[in-house]
């Protein structure tokens, strides 16, 4: 396991979340609607960030599976705000040069006649910088 203190502190700073408040109850993962899509689950994001074990998260598709539905934030009994932790890790990944998760070229293949603008705008905001 790596202990990347720099990245850990950076992620905590960007997210504004206090991972040390976590009491390991797993309610975030119990409540997560994207759980089955994720390799690392919300409680693991919190725990791994706390331990500085960031690299596996940065390289995981799980970053792009979080729906930002904030259910974990509202239901966490400790006010840890796991969704903000996930977002901070994702930003750390996509802020690197050329690390955008999708490009405009990917879009024509996945839209249909009904696709709302909101979907594209949201996806670009979440997946690209």
């Amino acid at each position: 396991m790596h202990n990347n203190k720099y990245l850990r502190d950076e992620i905590i700073r960007i997210s504004g979340a206090d991972v040390s408040k976590c009491m390991r109850c797993g309610k975030c993962s119990a409540t997560c609607p994207a759980y089955d899509e994720m390799e690392y689950h919300p409680h693991q994001f919190v725990n791994m960030v706390e331990c500085g074990d960031i690299e596996p998260l940065l390289n995981s598709e799980s970053l792009y599976k979080c729906l930002s539905c904030f259910a974990c934030i509202d239901r966490c009994p400790r006010g840890v705000q796991p969704a903000k932790v996930v977002e901070a890790v994702r930003l750390t990944a996509i802020r690197k040069q050329g690390a955008n998760h999708i490009t405009a070229d990917d879009i024509p293949a996945v839209v249909d006649a009904d696709t709302p603008q909101q979907l594209l705008v949201s996806a670009f905001r979440k997946y690209t910088k």
């Binding site: 609607p33 994207a34 599976k65 729906l67 930002s68 999708i102 979907l119 949201s122 996806a123 979440k126």
Partner: peptide
């Protein structure tokens, strides 16, 4: 008040569908 799948339907329509 559970999520419909949101923007994940772009990349993983099946996941959104399940929700």
């Amino acid at each position: 008040n559970e999520c419909c799948g949101g923007y994940i339907s772009l990349e993983s329509p099946d996941a959104a569908k399940k929700n």
